[in-house]
Design a protein around this nucleic acid. Structure first.
Lengths: 120, 120
DNA sequence: CAGTTAATTAACTATACGGTTAAATATAAA
DNA sequence: TTTATATTTAACCGTATAGTTAATTAACTG
């Protein structure tokens, strides 16, 4: 098996799973509720598998009540993944600055936002 | 092929690739420089493949000068991935609050940080 | 030109992944 | 006890992924 961060990013690398998380962000839901929007595209066992991936990554937890499994979003792994990305923030803000420089040369104007003056 | 976000998360789901990005965050580097720390564990073609994955995900760009390919980190896809995660921030801060509540019951004290009073 | 260095491509292999259908499990309801 | 509902498991399939070794491309160097 792999490290936590790899497992998290891997779990997030599928649009169905991200959609499931999006739905869970609106509140707990059981498997059939979660599956419903996807049943035109895939079978229920496919959803079960996706939920297993999310569960192993720690992104959701399931609790059983009678024959229903209620799923709940767990943010902790996202916190770690987000923290990892923060180290790179400077790289996308830098590219914003380059865009800013570019716009200045094109329009003679300067966009709003940071502008930590790269002279020349 | 898949959507951008899936491609980004997928590219990030490998520790070798994340290590490559970490090294590139310290400055541009060519392929052999990037490969060097990994050559005990894997071959050069393996690195070439990892770089291709990163390149297709838009996380790096390669420029050639003579027989060297210089690689440079590109933050834009990380910005998008990070923005996606931001929607879930409340879920990891919420769990912090629950920890906070728990600590309060155990120690009678309250930790520093936000405390948007969930009474009862 | 011959040789060296940097990196990629080709061909192959093993395993993981995302899906399927059919069968099994578990609880509730009649 | 049968039937219905919710969900999972098993077995399978095709494709993608991560690695290998060997061969190839491309540019520089003596």
């Amino acid at each position: 098996m792999q490290d936590h961060l790899s497992q998290t990013f891997s779990a997030l690398s599928d649009p169905t799973r991200r959609a499931i998380l999006a739905k869970l962000s609106k509140g707990e839901a059981n498997v059939s509720d979660l599956a419903e929007p996807f049943l035109k595209d895939m079978s229920l066992p496919a959803i079960t598998k996706h939920l297993k991936v999310l569960e192993k990554a720690g992104l959701i937890t399931k609790t059983r009540e009678a024959q229903w499994r209620s799923c709940k979003l767990n943010g902790a792994p996202l916190r770690d993944a987000s923290a990892w990305m923060e180290h790179y923030r400077v790289f996308w803000e830098e590219s914003f600055n380059r865009l800013d420089e570019y716009l200045k040369t094109v329009t003679g104007k300067v966009s709003k936002g940071k502008r930590n003056g790269r002279k020349k």
